[in-house]
């Protein structure tokens, strides 16, 4: 019994020590702006700009489905201009950030985990350490910052495209005029809806990139290990998105 308690205590102490070391390394890495600064734009383009098409593709169909679904739900009981309210509110606050985050968890998280995992198993990371390069500053920080900064950008575009696709669907496929649609959008619009979604997406970007980077740097066992790390990064990224989504809803709504 005493040994068991000792082991638990040692494990807790080890976790706290590792967390402290990780925080110290992270702070040190963030402070090395000259190391990660030049890489930021590249990562922003790779993780953010290059992800815009898939995010917009998702947003288009999300808006279409939401408009049709809303009209189906509201028919006969609720004025049809509520279609606009439902599409805008849902896309801004929930489906825009979450679906974009899910899509980017697959693309960005897998990308980071596979890239860093391959560098790890091919000992490129060890080579960087040998060259006295801060691995976290060089590999992790630019990716996390890039994802954190670019996820809101991608999400904002996705939200705009989602609302526009919902509007086009409502006016072309449903018996709804443009003024009626935007009457519904404006009726329940609050600026909080926008920044709430963008804040969530920033947190999703940070979590996905962090999961991908940490999982990649812990890769072991060659190509198979890279595959496991990639899968693990995507799964953890999606779980992180759902947990953060519930957290922000609990805290901010």
């Amino acid at each position: 019994m005493t040994d068991h308690l000792n082991r638990i205590g040692v494990a807790q102490l080890g976790f706290i020590r590792r967390t402290g070391r990780w925080a110290k390394d992270a702070a040190h890495a963030v402070s090395l702006v000259r190391t990660w600064g030049p890489l930021l734009a590249l990562q922003m383009r790779r993780l953010g700009v290059d992800s815009i098409p898939i995010a917009l593709f998702l947003a288009v169909f999300t808006g279409i489905v939401l408009a049709l679904l809303a009209s189906y739900i509201f028919t006969g009981a609720v004025p049809l201009y509520f279609v606009g309210a439902l599409v805008a509110k849902t896309v801004m606050m929930e489906l825009g950030p979450v679906l974009t985050g899910m899509a980017l968890a697959g693309r960005v998280g897998a990308n980071i985990a596979a890239e860093l995992g391959t560098m790890k198993v091919t000992e490129q990371v060890d080579a960087l350490e040998t060259l006295a390069v801060d691995v976290h500053a060089y590999l992790v920080v630019p990716r996390v910052f890039a994802a954190t900064l670019m996820f809101p950008v991608v999400t904002a575009m996705a939200v705009a495209v989602g609302v526009v696709s919902g509007w086009i669907t409502a006016t072309s496929l449903l018996d709804l005029s443009t003024p009626e649609f935007f009457k519904g959008v404006r009726q329940f619009y609050h600026f909080k809806d926008v920044w709430f979604g963008l804040l969530k997406s920033a947190s999703f970007g940070a979590a996905i990139s962090l999961m991908g980077a940490l999982t990649g740097l812990r890769t072991q066992g060659g190509a198979e290990g890279v595959g496991r790390s990639t899968t693990r990064a995507v799964v953890l990224g999606c779980e992180a998105i759902l947990v953060l989504d519930a957290f922000w809803a609990l805290v901010l709504l």
Binding site: M44, R45, V153, V154, A156, R186, Y189, F191, V194
Partner: peptide, 26 residues
């Protein structure tokens, strides 16, 4: 080129968010 595309994306997103917010809030 990377900086251009990133900057363009950020500006577009900023305009979408700010413009949309102003328009929707009338």
């Amino acid at each position: 080129r990377n900086e251009f595309f990133v900057g363009l994306s950020v500006i577009v997103a900023f305009l979408v968010v700010i413009g949309g917010a102003i328009w929707l809030s009338e």
